[in-house]
Amino acid sequence: MVTMLLDETSPHRPTAGICTDGAHSIKRGVSQYRGIDLKTGNELFNKELGNQTVNISEFLGVVAAIKYIIETGYSPKVIYTDSITAITWVNNKKTASQKRHSDLKRAEVFLKAMSSEVDTIEVRHWNTTEWGEIPADFGNK
């Protein structure tokens, strides 16, 4: 199981790890996610998903960060997201979405198949109240 650490008590904004965010534009009918390296500010990945939901985008963003860490040996093995839903779905290695999208099924299979490696990665909640918007935010609010 992925560790869910709520850093809500820490006044210090994280400076290392990967932060992810998802977004959905009703006007454009496009969902997307991306990951940012907290240390450098560089975008590590960015993907458009078509017309999905923000929860699906948030979840797939965290899964993409997990894959990135496993494939590249990225350190520290810490991911931040502001989505409790994404953290819950990752911990369960299964979504609660009624939508069926091939990326969702692949993500669930990946989380289960790679469980021993996935479980070495921490997924933490980004405390927006204390730290401001997550750096991966799309600014669509």
Results as ranks from 00 to 15, higher is better:
L111I: 00
E122F: 00
S75N: 09
G29S: 10
I66W: 08
G50E: 08
S57N: 04
T85A: 13
E43F: 00
T20L: 04
H101G: 03
Q52A: 13
H24R: 12
N55Y: 12
I121K: 03
I69K: 09
K27I: 02
I18D: 07
G35D: 03
T95V: 14
V78C: 05
K99D: 09
L5I: 14
E108K: 03
N91D: 04
G22N: 07
I18E: 08
A107Y: 09
D119M: 03
K47C: 08
V109Q: 10
F110V: 10
E117I: 04
H24Y: 13
G29L: 07
T15S: 14
G35P: 01
T53L: 01
V30S: 05
E133V: 04
T20I: 06
I79G: 12
K27L: 08
A65V: 00
N51Q: 09
E117N: 11
I26T: 12
I134A: 06
L49K: 05
F59D: 05
K27W: 00
T3Y: 12
Y68H: 15
K141P: 07
S83A: 06
N46M: 03
D37E: 03
K93E: 08
E8I: 15
I26E: 15
G29M: 07
W126L: 06
N92C: 05
L104Y: 05
D137V: 04
G61I: 02
E108D: 05
I134E: 09
R124M: 09
E8L: 14
H125I: 08
A65F: 03
T3M: 09
G50Q: 06
D103G: 00
I69F: 04
R100A: 11
I18Q: 04
Y33R: 02
E43Y: 00
S75L: 07
G73S: 08
T120P: 00
V2Q: 02
N42T: 00
S97F: 07
R124L: 06
D119L: 06
L38A: 01
L6M: 13
I87D: 05
S116D: 15
A23D: 01
H24W: 08
I84R: 15
K39A: 15
R28Y: 05
A86H: 02
Y68W: 13
L49M: 14
T3K: 13
T95C: 12
L49C: 07
A86P: 01
I36C: 07
I66Y: 11
I70R: 11
S115M: 02
A23M: 06
S31Q: 06
I87S: 07
K112S: 13
Q32F: 01
K47Q: 15
K39E: 13
D7T: 10
M1K: 12
N55H: 08
E122G: 01
Q98D: 04
D137E: 01
K105Y: 10
K94C: 09
Q32R: 13
G50K: 04
V118H: 03
K47H: 12
A64W: 01
H24T: 12
L60F: 10
F45M: 03
K67S: 13
E122Q: 05
P11D: 09
I79D: 10
Q52W: 00
K112C: 04
D103L: 14
M4Q: 13
W131S: 10
T95S: 15
V90T: 15
E130V: 04
I18V: 11
T15P: 00
N55T: 06
L44K: 03
E117K: 15
G17S: 05
D82L: 09
T85N: 13
A107T: 04
P135G: 07
L44D: 03
